[in-house]
Every structure is written in C-alpha cells, then in structure tokens.
C-alpha cells in the first residue's frame, strides 16, 4: 500500500484514493439515473389522464421547507468534513448528527407530502404524471433514507475508532453522496415543483 502523508487523512492510502475516484464515477452513473427519471417526468407530466394535475396538488410551503432543510444539512455536512480535516472528532460528530437529523426532518415532510397527495386522490396508479412524480421523488427519498442508515453506521464507527484513515475516508465519501442528493433536490425543486406551480 502506498502511503502519502502530505495528503488529507481520507486520501492518504492508495486503496482509499481509489475508493474516492470510484465513488465519483459512481456519482456519474447516478447523474444519468436521475437524468433519465427527470426526462421521464418531463415527458409524462402533462399526461394526467382524468386525474389531478401538478397545479392541483403542489403546495409551495412544505416544499420550500424541505429545500431549506436539505440545503442546511448539506452545509452542516460540509462543516463536519471541515472539522474532520482539522482532526476535531467532537465537532465532526456533532455536525454529522445535525446533518442526519435534518435529513430525517426532510424525509418526514416528504412522507407527509406523499400522504396529502394520496389523500387528495393522487396515487402511483392515478396517471402517467402521478407515476413519474412518485417514482422520481421516491427514488430521491429512498436515496436519502439509505443515506441516513449509512450515516448512522459511519457515526457508530467514528465513535468507536475516532478519526483514522478508514473512518475519514468513509465520512468523506458519505459527504459526496449527501451533497449530490442536495443538488438533485435543487433540480426537483426548480423543475418539478416551481415549474408545476407556475
């Protein structure tokens, strides 16, 4: 294993450097995945059949709240990595924890949103529009859920082992993932919700 001490902890050994590059490439694939879902949504969003339309069900306030919460969580996630670079375990843990809590809050609002849609009569089976909306949002939501589980697992490891090459590497990769989900949400907010409300 080649070790280079001039680099940040998470980049220090070769295997871990590979992991970071590998994850970037994986995010490339994720971009294609979400792009396909977006294109599906844009193709189908006017095809509401006899069901409700986007304008009928979208409400700005909860979505705006989701946006702020997720953006903030992305910021705190950045702070966690910043603290990690300084070698400060406590703040790293704290900011990670806040990030995950905000993630959970986001997820809670999203579930509430889904609940209201279904309540108003828009379900996965209603129309092509509804199917594409639920699957696009659901895929993002599932990613956030997975992120929460992953983040908890990493926090347990940080707690047990403190900051070392392995835990730093895992935390850093997690942060890439989390920022990516934030970017995807910004697209959802702008091109699904704002466009639907216009």
């Amino acid at each position: 294993m080649k070790i280079d001490n001039s680099l940040p902890l998470e980049y220090r050994n070769e295997e871990n450097r590979f992991r970071i590059i590998g994850f970037w490439i994986f995010l490339g694939a994720e971009i294609v995945l979400f792009a396909t879902l977006f294109l599906t949504y844009f193709t189908l969003w006017t095809r509401t059949g006899s069901g409700l339309t986007a304008a009928d069900v979208f409400v700005l306030e909860p979505v705006l709240a989701e946006t702020f919460i997720l953006l903030t969580s992305s910021f705190t996630c950045g702070l966690a990595i910043h603290a990690m670079r300084q070698g400060l375990i406590k703040p790293t843990m704290w900011f990670m924890g806040i990030t995950l809590l905000l993630g959970a809050a986001f997820l809670g609002i999203e579930i509430y949103e889904f609940y209201t849609y279904v309540h108003e009569g828009l379900t996965l089976q209603t129309s092509a529009f509804a199917s594409s909306l639920f699957v696009l949002l659901g895929t993002h939501g599932a990613h956030v859920t997975f992120g929460l589980l992953w983040g908890i697992a990493i926090m347990i490891q940080l707690k047990r082992e403190g900051l070392n090459e392995t835990t730093a590497n895992k935390s850093f990769i997690f942060s890439l993932y989390w920022h990516f989900l934030d970017v995807v949400w910004i697209f959802i907010f702008s091109f699904v919700y704002l466009k639907g409300l216009m």
């Binding site: 006017t46 339309t53 304008a55 529009f129």
Partner: peptide
C-alpha cells in the same frame, strides 16, 4: 386530448 396542460386546465 392527451396533452392537457396542468396550468391551463
């Protein structure tokens, strides 16, 4: 008829 625009309903 399949392209009902949501906003313009």
């Amino acid at each position: 008829s399949h392209f009902k625009k949501p906003g313009q309903k």
